[in-house]
């Protein structure tokens, strides 16, 4: 009882910060429930990645191997993880609520006949969990019944686990998959090309909204500021819907949830749905010409100004600062 299986999502053998937050949460949960934390890395040849995550404080790592786990597909992964969770007798199975975690874990929960709490932000000592609902405007304390409990964590709510000096043992297991029941086929992945940091990894994020008026202005007005700061670029739903930037830059209730050290919102009014994705940032800075814009209510520093004038001025000022 109390053992926690942590699904360690990797990107070609590399573990992003988002995964390490689930590791942290899994370690904390195992400690609170008096169990072991076991990481699982899935793939067609997951051994190398498994060796990497073994340094992060877990009791054991399972390298779960099968040719059908080469590209991520929900049906094969759900089969493999459900069989493993039962075999290991885990009480909890946990992952980060990335696009993969969100796609996979409800399917896994249904396969286990288990209930799932999505995007938890806190693990309470009494066995309950806290999760945001209504775009983060209502925090629900929930309890899960049943011998096995399925969880995803909101990456911004937990610190990333840190590597130690020793490594846990890695155990290779062949995944139990009924290949005849697999019905999904991976066709292609079209990566958004960018040299900038990823939104969920970045220390600073500069986001643009409808106020930028055109895709062109993201390039000429916003990007110089983004790059001067070495920041990631984000956007409001309105900017993505208008086709100014690709969909994976969307910050908000239904896009990415971020909490960087500095979030600069440019030409974003601050709809509830956008605030849901960034209001836990350490410092929020907003530039908008409408002084009534709701973004100012959550901003530590607000500047009521024409962004087409203010953003280049900020970029210039930061350049000076760096060279002073």
């Amino acid at each position: 009882m109390g053992d926690v299986l942590i699904f360690a999502e990797h990107q070609g053998g590399h573990f992003p910060k988002a995964t390490l937050t689930a590791v942290h949460a899994g370690l904390d949960l195992a400690k609170k429930r008096g169990g072991k934390a076991i990481a699982v890395v899935a793939g067609d040849a997951p051994e190398a990645a498994a060796g990497e995550i073994a340094k992060y404080g877990v009791a054991k790592v399972i390298a779960l191997a099968h040719p059908a786990l080469k590209n991520y597909l929900a049906d094969a992964h759900a089969q493999a993880l459900a069989a493993l969770a039962k075999k290991e007798g885990a009480e909890f199975i946990i992952a980060t609520a990335t696009a993969m975690g969100k796609d996979l874990f409800p399917r896994l929960a249904a396969r286990l006949g288990a209930a799932m709490a999505s995007e938890i932000t806190a693990i309470n000592d009494d066995g309950t969990f806290v999760r945001p609902t209504y775009a983060g405007n209502v925090m629900a304390t929930v309890e899960i019944d049943g011998p096995i409990k399925v969880l995803t964590v909101r990456g911004t709510a937990f610190d990333a686990a840190k590597p130690g000096d020793s490594a846990a043992p890695v155990e290779k297991q062949n995944a139990e998959i009924d290949a005849g029941a697999l019905k999904m086929e991976f066709v292609s992945f079209n990566a958004t090309k960018s040299d900038r940091p990823q939104l969920t990894e970045a220390r600073i994020i500069v986001s643009g909204g409808r106020g930028l008026k055109a895709a062109e202005n993201f390039k000429t007005v916003l990007e110089p500021l983004v790059d001067e700061l070495g920041a990631a670029m984000g956007a409001s739903r309105a900017a993505v819907d208008a086709g100014f930037v690709p969909n994976d830059l969307q910050v908000g209730q239904t896009g990415k949830v971020v909490a960087p050290e500095l979030y600069i919102a440019v030409g974003i009014s601050g709809a509830i749905q956008h605030l849901a994705g960034m209001k836990d940032s350490k410092v929020i800075c907003a530039i908008n010409k409408d002084e009534e814009a709701p973004i100012f209510a959550v901003a530590d520093y607000g500047l009521v100004a024409d962004l087409f004038k203010a953003v280049p001025e900020m970029t210039e000022e930061i350049k000076k600062l760096k060279h002073s």
Partner: peptide, 13 residues
């Protein structure tokens, strides 16, 4: 599908 880092295409019957 809209996933982290880009767009993924999958197919099935």
């Amino acid at each position: 599908r809209e996933v982290d880092g880009g767009l993924e295409t999958i197919a099935f019957k």
